[in-house]
Simulated assay, not measured.
Amino acid sequence: MRRDVEPLQRRFAAVGRLSDPHWLGYNPNDSGRESIPDQDPRIRVVGVARLPAGTVNSIVSATDYAFEPSTPSQLPEELAEFLPKNAEWVSSADYDDHITNSHYPGRFHLAPATDWVYFDTVNPEIVDGSHPQ
């Protein structure tokens, strides 16, 4: 379990100022038994972080994105205890594209009542021109 914020902040700058992260970065295809390393490793970066108070409400109320109720899927067991209890998550494919700049797969679930973001990405890049929403 990682708790450092800097690698996340560089990749997800458009989300806003992150704090209190709990996250994992790993190759989901690596069973630990392969004799030949994966030539094209996929690194899944998945976790949760808090945003400053009111940030999520500001994002969700923007008319540029059609947020709908959602549920994070394929949650790694190690992260379950760090998700806010009874969170009401919302997400938007358009918002996901805004954050990733359509450069890598990623899903971002937001909890307006608690200002938490749950992210699930593959090979997240540092996207030039990223800016907080």
Rank of each mutant, 00 (worst) to 15 (best):
S58P: 04
E78I: 11
D4Y: 01
M1H: 13
P52F: 01
D30P: 02
R10T: 14
H103F: 14
F82K: 05
D96M: 00
Y95A: 11
A62H: 11
R10G: 12
A80R: 15
F67L: 12
A113R: 12
N101M: 07
R42K: 14
L24Y: 02
E77F: 09
Y95L: 04
R44W: 00
L83R: 14
V56T: 03
D96E: 09
P105R: 08
S19F: 00
L110R: 04
I43E: 05
A14W: 00
S91W: 01
L79M: 13
A13W: 04
Y95V: 07
P105V: 06
R50S: 13
D40A: 10
Y65L: 14
P69L: 10
G106R: 01
Y65H: 15
G16P: 13
S19R: 10
G16F: 01
Y65A: 14
A53N: 11
R44N: 10
P69W: 00
N101V: 00
E77Y: 08
N29Y: 07
P69Q: 07
L18H: 03
V60I: 04
A87W: 02
R44Y: 02
Q39R: 10
Q9E: 04
F67D: 06
H22R: 13
A113M: 13
S91D: 07
A113I: 09
N27G: 05
M1F: 09
L83W: 03
P37V: 04
L18V: 09
D64T: 15
A80M: 14
A111W: 06
E77L: 15
P41M: 03
A49G: 00
R2H: 10
L24F: 03
D94H: 06
L110T: 08
S91M: 04
R50E: 10
P72I: 01
D96W: 00
A80L: 15
V60T: 11
L24S: 07
R42S: 13
R42Y: 02
P28Q: 03
P52M: 02
H98S: 09
Q74P: 06
D94C: 06
I43G: 01
P84V: 01
T71P: 06
Q9N: 08
R42A: 13
R107E: 03
E78D: 15
G106N: 05
D4G: 11
R33L: 15
A62S: 15
L8A: 02
P69R: 08
E78R: 14
L79A: 10
